[in-house]
């Protein structure tokens, strides 16, 4: 039984990884395509680095992710604090359920629903370019918000209710008490909400696809437009770099997380 389990586990893991590994290996293939390995070459990477579009897409993606993560973390954290103080359970439940709609709804529906809003409002205002960076930003903040609330609220609920009272008792104004006492104690949750929002924004394709204009292209959108054409191994190169970046971040966060844990 034990060995059977092991075989099963590693078989599935192998199936999960083979395509990605093939992709990585063939990004170094001299000839394009994955039919056969004809020799090691960095040709496709050179090709990729010559592609100015890829760099601007990378820059766009990072700017968008940073902006969306900051904005959703601020709004979401404030909302979590406000909700905690809210008396009516009913109102709270309605707000939370509505917040979670983009999490439960298919991305394509979230995407087209926002697109319809932007197009309609843009049309009313007579704008020529109805979709742009800001519509993209709004869309990203919207789908990040439930995740920020999801990681901040449990920390806030764990917080001893007497702490803010103690701070006020010692002379803190309510706002001061938030920054001096509550925020430092929920900071872990706020940070993980931020990181979650950042990665979700980096990763998003479907919602971006419907809410961006021609002027603002992100990395997933670039990959999409690249794959629309015939197979070109520079996508393999780009994907390899992205997978490497994700792996690096995951290892880093695990090492840091592990250190945090051992400190406690």
């Amino acid at each position: 039984m034990k060995t059977l389990s092991k075989i099963y586990l590693w078989l599935i893991l192998a199936l999960l990884y083979i395509p990605i590994i093939v992709l990585i290996v063939f990004s170094f293939n001299k000839s394009g395509g994955t039919g056969g390995f004809t020799g090691f070459s960095l040709y496709w990477y050179r090709e990729l680095f010559r592609n100015a579009e890829a760099f601007s897409a990378l820059k766009n993606t990072l700017i968008l992710a940073l902006a969306a993560a900051c904005l959703s973390t601020v709004i979401g954290t404030a909302a979590a604090v406000g909700l905690e103080k809210m008396k009516s359970r009913h109102v709270k439940q309605v707000i939370l359920s509505t917040t979670n709609v983009p999490m439960m709804n298919p991305d394509i529906v979230t995407g087209i629903s926002m697109m319809l809003l932007f197009v309609f409002v843009g049309g009313m205002l007579g704008m020529t370019e109805k979709l742009n960076f800001f519509t993209l930003l709004i869309a990203h903040v919207t789908f990040c918000l439930p995740y920020v609330l999801l990681s901040v609220r449990p920390r806030l609920r764990q917080l001893d209710r007497a702490l803010p009272e103690a701070a006020k008792d010692l002379g803190c104004t309510p706002v001061g008490s938030f920054f001096r006492v509550e925020l430092p104690n929920i900071f872990g949750g706020v940070m993980s909400g931020f990181v979650m929002a950042f990665t979700l924004s980096l990763d998003d394709f479907v919602i971006s696809y419907f809410t961006t204009g021609s002027s603002y292209q992100t990395l997933p959108l670039l990959i999409y437009s690249m794959t629309k054409k015939e197979v070109k191994p520079d996508i393999y190169a780009l994907s390899t770099l992205i997978v490497a970046a994700v792996l690096l971040l995951l290892i880093l966060s695990n090492v840091l997380g592990g250190r945090e844990r051992s400190k406690k």
Binding site: I20, D203, P220, I223, S239
Partner: peptide, 11 residues
């Protein structure tokens, strides 16, 4: 954590 497009493309 790897983008869906990349995963699908690798398939």
């Amino acid at each position: 954590w790897t983008n869906l497009l990349i995963r699908t493309y690798s398939m």
